[in-house]
């Protein structure tokens, strides 16, 4: 049998990237349905006014759901962007930069969303 000459990396990293992308996708189908129903179908005219949003976010169940939603949507979006970028055949160094930039963006937006929510519900 021929020897394996291709460069392989077997740490489970590509596997978990795929599995988490699929799992976050499935989770999003549930969370996004709740998000849309909670935000748009209970409100007159499809959108909540300011008081409605604040009362909504002060409900701890909604707060947890929205935080989970924000986390999984950001993961799913940036993992998806990464998949598209990896198809542009980047070098290993470029791939590392892609990982760092997208992780920073994702975590940054998550923290921003969390701080914004906390500011709005506590004032």
């Amino acid at each position: 049998m021929a020897t394996i000459t291709r460069v392989t990396r077997w740490g489970g990293y590509p596997a978990w990237a795929w599995i988490l992308q699929a799992a976050s996708g499935v989770l999003l189908v549930v969370l996004l349905s709740l998000h849309i129903i909670a935000q748009h179908f209970v409100a007159p005219g499809g959108v909540l006014d300011y008081g409605g949003v604040v009362a909504h976010l002060r409900n701890p169940v909604i707060f947890v759901l929205e935080t989970a939603f924000a986390g999984s949507v950001l993961f799913h979006v940036f993992a998806g962007v990464r998949a598209i970028l990896l198809d542009l055949a980047p070098s290993k160094a470029q791939e590392r930069s892609i990982n760092v930039i997208l992780t920073t963006l994702g975590v940054g937006l998550f923290v921003y969303g969390l701080v914004l929510t906390l500011v709005v519900v506590t004032r």
Binding site: D49, Y50, G51, V53, V73, I84, V119
Partner: peptide, 28 residues
């Protein structure tokens, strides 16, 4: 890709919550 763009725009529009009640209700 369209949904990614929408998510980023959505982050901008929910930021209006920070500006307070009047600004948010006008946007809505």
């Amino acid at each position: 890709v369209l949904l990614m763009i929408y998510l980023l725009v959505h982050f901008v529009n929910i930021s209006v919550l920070y500006l307070g009640e009047t600004a948010w209700n006008q946007l809505m």
